[in-house]
Design a protein around this nucleic acid. Structure first.
Length: 271
DNA sequence: AGCACTGTTTACAT
DNA sequence: TATGTAAACAGTGC
């Protein structure tokens, strides 16, 4: 479900309730969510206290008093902070019993989400975080020249490259369309044909659009919520994604598949 | 009923 | 190495 603004919103919401909460027990109902050996995961997280909640790209990072709980929501993952036994359904796959009588529930309709435990010295040095590229919100002074080298001789469409989290991290299907519209670049252009100036424009638009989306608590098109029943607002500011008419020149938008992902763009404004 | 679609990532074949 | 496809899974809508 979520791209960077949605994950950032979830992080902020969870931070209000979870700081200094101790995890007394963990109930895992569906093993597929946990990437580690189950006992390794349980033994390392049970009894730990949540000191902070961080984010990198689309990953949520619970900083514990020792090590980290790394979590990716993929398409449908959601966290709910509720009084014990207040809510249950068949899509709740992991339950963290907290020391104050509340639970942190992990719900995931499609079961794509992943969690793992990372030691203090592992977090940023091992997959997946070590492979992530420029985070437009967290990284203030990126080496644009170095990033641009990665586009070097790629033949795939620029949209596919921007969905690849190893160059810029945090963009997904919605925000890539919006970024390319703002920077007036056709999503079907070959990556290697993007000029350095155009790449800078993409980076600037990414930062600007992601910031605005965070201010609006993310985009809710079908199922995203940051907590129980709380939707985002940025869908009201989308220019092209899910739209029919170009807001700039008023012609009909193109709707094509790139990488198997529905893509919206204006053939007139985006070159 | 059956098929196409969905905000993600990655394993695998070519 | 680079790229495209399928798979992980469940629900919704036509």
């Amino acid at each position: 479900m979520p791209e960077l603004p949605e994950v950032e919103t979830v992080r902020r919401v969870l931070k209000e309730d979870l700081i200094n909460r101790k995890i007394d027990n963990i109930i895992i109902r569906y093993d597929g969510i946990i990437e580690d050996d189950i006992n390794y995961f349980l033994n390392n997280i049970k009894g730990k206290t949540i000191l902070d909640i961080l984010r990198r790209g689309k990953y949520l990072i619970f900083k514990l008093n020792e090590g980290y709980l790394l979590s990716h929501l993929r398409m449908e993952g959601k966290y709910f902070y509720l009084k014990r036994n207040e809510l249950d359904n068949k899509h709740i796959h992991v339950i963290f019993n907290l020391d104050n009588g509340f639970d942190l529930l992990y719900q995931d309709v499609r079961k794509f989400g992943k969690m793992s435990y990372k030691k203090d010295d592992e977090l940023y040095n091992t997959h997946p975080l070590k492979d992530l590229g420029y985070d437009p919100i967290l990284d203030l002074n990126p080496d644009y020249k170095e990033l641009y080298k990665k586009l070097n001789k790629k033949l795939i469409p620029i949209k596919s490259t921007l969905l690849d989290q190893t160059i810029i991290t945090g963009l997904g299907n919605i925000y890539v369309d919006e970024v390319l519209f703002e920077s007036k670049i056709n999503p079907e252009r070959k990556t290697k044909d993007i000029s350095f100036d155009e790449f800078i424009s993409i980076c600037n638009s990414s930062k600007h659009i992601l910031e605005e989306a965070i201010k609006n608590k993310g985009t809710t098109i079908r199922s995203y919520t940051s907590s129980l029943g709380v939707i985002g607002n940025y869908q009201n500011f989308l220019n092209v994604h899910t739209k029919n008419i170009c807001p700039r020149c008023k012609i009909a938008l193109n709707r094509v598949k790139i990488n198997g992902r529905m893509t919206y763009y204006c053939n007139n404004c985006q070159r």
